[in-house]
Simulated assay, not measured.
Amino acid sequence: MSFFNKMLASIGVGGAKVDTKLEKSEYIAGETIRGQVEVKGGNVQQRIDSIYLTLYTTYTREMDDTKYTDRAALYTHKLNEPFTIRAKEEKVIPFALTVPMETPLTYGHTRVWIATSLDIKSAPDPTDKDYIEIRPARIPAAVLKEMQGMGFRLREAECEQAPKRFRGRYPFVQEFEFVPVGGPFAGKLDEVEIIFLSQAAESANLLIQVDRKARGFGGFLEEMLEMDETYVKITIYSSDLSRLNEKLKSLIDKHS
């Protein structure tokens, strides 16, 4: 019977199982995720070589004019040294890991999750998947709020494959597309796109694209040739937050 159970476990039947439980399901970029991994032994004793926790996100990449949804690993954490779990035994292993500052916000179709996998030799690796919501840290939250305060509406937020010149630690960037529905830029701009190129606790590097509204025949030609778009790089520091409205408004106005 024991040999039969071992044979079944080697193909994933009656083997160990894993379940990750988190303290909560919503986090701010830079915050610590705390939880525990519960490992339950199956019908036979098995050696667990390692447990890995990986934070993943989705992003869109384009190939041959076709868009695909891909995934990127943001952070991988090895939780333990090898151990043996007996049949029907239960082990609980606590953990803590920090959400990287550049983790995309879960707006639109973007998803973020923690994947847990047990590395078991000569057997399928049991896995678990826990989706979480990511909310903006202090600086991105202030930028998004000020854009809305200037009369812009967030039309779309999407994680896309990054062009090589803008690629940092990860193969994607998250783009926030705003359209003016009121305020000083209504009628002057088609849209403003903001990309957070990199982030830290006290600063964020932004790429802002200002798309001017076509005016007359010259403006129409500019739009046709995509000359109506201006790209500007800017760094926002925590010390800028008290005058962030003025800083963003001045920059956008200059390139309107």
Rank of each mutant, 00 (worst) to 15 (best):
Glu158Asn: 04
Gly42Cys: 11
Leu225Thr: 13
Lys247Ser: 04
Tyr170Met: 06
Phe95Cys: 12
Glu160Phe: 09
Lys78Met: 14
Val99Asp: 00
Lys213Val: 08
Glu229Tyr: 00
Ser25Cys: 01
Arg111Gln: 15
Leu206Asn: 06
Ile28Cys: 02
Cys159Pro: 03
Leu74Val: 06
Leu221Tyr: 13
Lys78Cys: 12
Leu241Lys: 04
Ser239Lys: 14
Asp130Arg: 11
Ile134Arg: 00
Ala137Leu: 04
Gly35Pro: 11
Ser50Met: 06
Leu207Asn: 08
Glu81Tyr: 02
Leu74Trp: 07
Glu81Met: 02
Arg135His: 07
Tyr59Met: 02
Phe95Met: 12
Arg111Asp: 14
Arg34Val: 12
Gly187Pro: 08
Gly182Asp: 15
Glu202Tyr: 08
Lys24Cys: 06
Met227Gln: 11
Asp240His: 14
Leu105Lys: 03
Glu226Ala: 12
Phe4Arg: 04
Ala204Ile: 08
Ala96Asn: 11
Thr98Val: 04
Met147Leu: 11
Leu53Phe: 07
Arg86Ile: 00
Pro136Thr: 15
Ile236Val: 06
Tyr27Thr: 01
Met224Asn: 12
Glu38Pro: 05
Lys145His: 12
Glu222Pro: 05
Ile51Asp: 00
Asp228Ser: 13
Pro136Ala: 09
Ser239Ile: 06
Met101Leu: 15
Arg135Tyr: 03
Leu97Ala: 03
Glu31Tyr: 10
Ile93Pro: 00
Met224His: 13
Arg212Ile: 09
Leu221Asp: 09
Ile48Tyr: 14
Phe3Gln: 10
Arg135Cys: 01
Gln148Phe: 00
Phe196Arg: 03
Ala200Arg: 15
Asn245Arg: 13
Phe196Val: 08
Arg86Gln: 13
Val13His: 06
Ser198Gln: 01
Ala16Pro: 10
Gly15Tyr: 05
Tyr59Asn: 00
Glu222Ser: 09
Leu118Trp: 05
Gly14Glu: 03
Gly41Val: 02
Lys213Ser: 10
Ile132Arg: 00
Thr57Leu: 09
Arg243Asn: 08
Tyr27Lys: 04
Ala9Thr: 04
Ile236Asn: 02
Ala115Ser: 15
Pro163Ile: 11
Ala200Tyr: 08
Ala162Gly: 12
Arg47Phe: 00
Met101Gly: 03
Pro126Ile: 12
Cys159Arg: 02
Asp190Tyr: 07
Lys91Met: 15
Thr127Trp: 05
Phe83Asn: 03
Leu55Phe: 04
Lys67Pro: 05
Gly216Ala: 08
Val92Asn: 14
Lys6Pro: 01
Gly108Thr: 11
Asp64Phe: 08
Phe185Cys: 01
Ile51Gln: 01
Phe4Val: 10
Ile139Arg: 07
Asp190Gly: 05
Pro180Met: 05
Val112Phe: 10
Tyr27Ser: 00
Ala123Gln: 09
Val112Tyr: 07
Leu97Trp: 03
Glu193Asn: 15
Thr66Arg: 15
Thr127Val: 12
Gly219Leu: 04
Ala73Lys: 09
Glu223Trp: 11
Phe166Gly: 01
Glu31Ile: 13
Gln46Leu: 14
Arg155Cys: 04
Leu79Ser: 10
Ser25Trp: 02
